[in-house]
């Protein structure tokens, strides 16, 4: 058996794969957070709850109406995005003129409410979501066995991250978004409906979280608590990357996922905390974050 640094090749590759999958979720979630933060200046604490909602909507669509995975992958983000738009329009938008901390506190309350409600109806234990038949099984790569679904998660998240990046950097809508991030009042005086843009941006962020949730459903158990633990890690990812750049959020997400996977191989005790340790080191050496411009 091939050994690398005294570790079997297959084990190393296996953990690297798990790291890459976690990284896929970190990247999708921190991308959504960065998009929302860029324009709304709100740290969306409810992002984890929206991720959980995505997984639950997929599960309920399947068990109640028999809607399959592929349709849920489109439908769940739309439903959660619409919910996000309603929240933004009716409540969150009232807080923009205040200290940004109120946005964080409000979305924190929202997250508690959503998660508590789902615990009330569905209990705290997880429920399995079947892997879609088309993606069942795996392939032997020679040095390791790759479950097809996991490969799909990596590909799908990468594709969505690139698509969102292109949307923001290369389209007209994206130029509105970037300009409004710099000076919303001037963009509105040009005749762009900035309040609507804010609503759409929040909806986009929420639906990205929901998309990640549907992707996660067949891998992890669908449970009301699945969002809270991951969101705190994603906050650390966002601090490491710096909120300044969309690309930074994506790249940092993947990198830290891989770093976490490697830690599992070489020093498993620290695998829960490695991202937080990296965050502390980055803050000491480069407070603005790896890709951040502000200090």
């Amino acid at each position: 058996m091939t050994m690398i640094f005294g570790v079997p090749m297959a084990a190393l590759m296996g953990q690297l794969l798990i790291g890459l999958i976690n990284g896929s979720f970190y990247a999708l979630l921190s991308l959504g957070l960065a998009v929302i933060f860029g324009l709304l200046r709100v740290i969306n604490f409810a992002h984890g709850a929206q991720y959980m909602l995505g997984a639950f909507v997929a599960l309920l669509l399947l068990t109640w109406t028999g809607v399959n995975y592929w349709i849920a992958l489109i439908l769940a983000p739309l439903i959660v995005g619409t919910f996000g738009a309603l929240v933004e329009r009716t409540m969150l938008s009232r807080l923009y003129k205040l200290d940004h901390l109120y946005g964080l506190l409000f979305t924190f309350g929202l997250a508690l409410t959503i998660e508590g409600t789902f615990r009330y109806f569905f209990g705290s234990s997880g429920q399995p979501y079947p892997t879609p038949p088309a993606l069942a099984g795996g392939v032997n790569l020679g040095f390791m066995f790759l479950p097809i679904y996991r490969g799909w998660v990596i590909v799908a998240s990468l594709a969505v991250c690139i698509a969102v990046w292109l949307l923001i950097e290369k389209t007209k809508l994206g130029s509105y978004l970037r300009a409004a991030t710099e000076n919303p009042v001037l963009v509105q005086s040009f005749g762009v409906n900035v309040p609507l843009l804010l609503t759409l941006t929040y909806a986009l962020g929420a639906s990205l979280a929901a998309f990640a949730g549907v992707l996660a459903a067949p891998i992890y158990q669908v449970s009301p608590l699945m969002g809270t633990n991951i969101i705190i890690v994603v906050f650390a990812v966002v601090v490491v990357g710096g909120m300044g750049s969309i690309l930074g959020a994506i790249v940092t997400g993947y990198l830290l996922g891989i770093a976490e996977g490697l830690t599992k191989v070489f020093y498993p005790e620290a695998s829960n905390t490695v991202i937080f340790v990296i965050m502390a080191i980055v803050l000491i050496l480069r407070p603005a974050g790896l890709f951040g411009k502000d200090v």
């Binding site: 940004h100 901390l101 890690v233 650390a236 966002v238 905390t273 937080f276 965050m279 502390a280």
Partner: peptide, 28 residues
């Protein structure tokens, strides 16, 4: 010492992450 290097929202997120780290320390 670590958290006051950033302000506002970042300060909130950093203190949350650091306390979560302490949580895992207490768990292990």
């Amino acid at each position: 010492l670590i958290a006051i290097r950033r302000q506002g929202i970042y300060f909130a997120m950093i203190t949350l992450a650091l306390s979560q780290m302490f949580f895992f320390f207490c768990l292990q």
